[in-house]
Nucleic acid binder design. Structure first.
Lengths: 247, 247
DNA sequence: CGAATGCTTGAGGACCATCAACCCCTGTGG
DNA sequence: CCACAGGGGTTGATGGTCCTCAAGCATTCG
């Protein structure tokens, strides 16, 4: 058992510890989870909508999204997932969900059996609370997206998404909030914020001309964090992270 | 301990058992939760945004809503709560949330201490999973709202809300899906679906003229359930209830 | 080098917001 | 009993934000 844990499990553990205190034994239990890696190429669905699963998907590298499908085929993205995110941890308690999960880039995913996750919960009840707390943070983000899509104008919606991803990427230790890779097409951004790709394009141009943020070639360069958060009305408290070392 | 449980606790238990199997002992633990009732009059905030709480709020009677407040003061409602709903059960693991909770009508609320809820979890770890599952259902509804607000047109958005409330009210045993009390103003509906009160009014007129549903005097009369679910593109699976006795 | 995908920009139009007026109902106080 | 105020519902006119359609350009990949 001295085998080193998969780095993605360490990322997942770090994500849990952003919000929960875990004992050494609990940490070890998470790191010793049995994981089956699979490779998924860009634009492939990992979980089809409405399917029942007996495992959760931990992103080891790449980007994934949760989506809801309309009758006419258009998709609404309801969450983005980056390395270290367990994108359907809640499926442990709700194995049949209405949504699907798609890989946005070539992605490495670790499949972790529900039975294994339940095993850690049985051994360490505190882990159930940690898992629950983790999915609660996701739910808090969902609520914020509703407010963003329902009440903010197009420019603020796009700016808000850029801010959220900046903080999440920084806290995941993947890069800095002022310069990070955004592996999304403008159409995928549009599907997340409830706009069309054409209009997202114009809003990105606005943000660039305003000197807030420049998005080019799948890379975000934040020119003025203060101004960007201002136009987004962004307050990171909703992500329920501790150590929100602002600035 | 033969004291009969508060009826709201029985409703809450029934809600849990819509989604989880609980042993007799676990059920008894839920019913014996200590609760402090308070009366809140319409339009009062129960929990202010950003406040830290050490209790959860169980709705005994009336309607409440979770809301997010914008900078300019306008509100976005992110969830409705009816009798039997524990409107911030997740606060057990995340006591500081960004949102607020407001009473929409005169409402009776039972305050249940987090320590009491944690006590039941310590005694019956399976209850942690039941609570987690319950909040997961809320999160699933949030995700559906994002899709609804982001991608559906105004008429479908309003119709979808009417469908969702119909099913929830029916499953809570409060009344039937085809005729129920809707204790919301058109402005509150607008705050939930991301429209203005004026446009909600027009959409309700559309639904009435189409023969789908008539909303008057805080009462919904469903004229044609099939047609209503059709214009809403409503599929109740996302609510994660079992026994979805359709029709 | 052709095909596919994504980005960019323009022109016109639809949907929904805004503003405004009027109605109804309820409660309050003279 | 009536006057009045306030909240909510209803409808019309006007306008803005964002969608739709379309075309051109850049980049990547076979």
């Amino acid at each position: 058992m001295i085998a080193p844990a998969h780095p993605a499990l360490e990322r997942f553990l770090a994500r849990l510890m952003l919000r929960s205190n875990l004992s050494a034994a609990e940490q070890a239990a998470v790191l010793s989870l049995n994981a089956q890696p699979i490779e998924v190429s860009a634009r492939r669905d990992v979980v089809m909508p409405g399917r029942t699963v007996d495992y959760s998907c931990l992103i080891a590298s790449g980007w994934a999204a949760r989506f809801d499908q309309m009758r006419d085929g258009q998709r609404q993205i309801t969450a983005f997932y980056i390395a270290g995110d367990m994108c359907d941890l809640h499926s442990v308690v709700a194995p049949t969900a209405g949504w699907g999960i798609a890989a946005l880039t070539d992605t490495t995913i670790l499949k972790i059996a529900h039975s294994a996750l339940r095993g850690t919960v049985d051994a360490f009840p505190n882990l159930a609370l940690a898992y629950w707390r983790d999915t609660t943070a996701d739910a808090s983000i969902l609520a914020k997206w509703i407010a963003n899509i329902g009440r903010a104008d197009a420019e603020a919606r796009v700016a808000h998404l850029l801010c959220e991803l900046a903080i999440r990427i920084e806290h995941a230790g993947l890069s800095s909030r002022t310069a990070y890779a955004l592996r999304l097409t403008q159409e995928q951004i549009a599907d997340a914020v409830g706009l069309t790709a054409v209009h997202v394009n114009r809003m990105l141009r606005n943000l660039r001309h305003a000197g807030s943020a420049a998005v080019q070639n799948h890379a975000v360069e934040v020119l003025d964090w203060q101004r960007l958060t201002d136009t987004a009305a962004f307050d990171p408290a909703y992500m329920l992270m501790r150590q929100l070392s602002d600035r």
